[in-house]
């Protein structure tokens, strides 16, 4: 219960922000918070709070897996890499061969979400393949 107290503000905010399927469970000294955030902004807000309660995420007592509700297939997304081109791969994994590139800040079309890490996308150049979800931001 101590952990739920420690992260009370985070849990309360998640509830108040319309996070759905919210699940809070403590196992072996680690609090697991799962849920689906209505938007990327809410997810960012929760992560800001997490970083405030546990600076630099050093405590190792919280696993927060709050996903942003999957964007519908056909949605356009921006390649939000730091500066480089995004690899488009044959399969969902960095061990998969690269079949193409999507330029930094270019637009790709989302085809389907494989898992929390990988999206099947189509680039402007018409290359279809898997892109790492961290580097693509669905357009509102």
């Amino acid at each position: 219960m101590a952990l739920q107290d420690k992260y009370k503000e985070l849990i309360d905010t998640a509830n108040a922000s319309g996070v759905t399927n919210l699940q809070v469970a403590e196992t072996d000294g680690v609090l697991h918070i799962d849920g689906e955030a209505p938007s990327g902004a809410i997810k960012d807000k929760l992560w800001d709070l997490y970083g405030k309660i546990d600076p630099n995420f050093k405590a190792g007592d919280l696993i927060m897996n709050v996903d942003v509700a999957a964007a519908a297939a056909g949605t356009k997304a921006t390649v939000t890499t730091e500066s480089t081109d995004l690899n488009i791969r044959k399969g969902p994994g960095t061990d998969q061969p690269i079949v193409g590139k999507a330029g930094h800040l270019s637009t790709v079309t989302l085809i389907s979400k494989t898992n929390d890490q990988w999206w099947l996308v189509k680039t402007d150049a018409g290359v279809e393949g898997y892109a790492y979800a961290q580097y693509i931001t669905p357009k509102a």
Binding site: G51, F57, G60, I63, D67, Q117
Partner: peptide
């Protein structure tokens, strides 16, 4: 880098590990 840490942590958290021992 401090600016990269949240991004890495978010991705690692989404892998549903039992725990993350962050000694970075």
């Amino acid at each position: 880098k401090k600016s990269s840490l949240p991004k890495l942590m978010q991705t690692l958290n989404s892998l549903k590990p039992t725990k993350i021992d962050n000694q970075l």
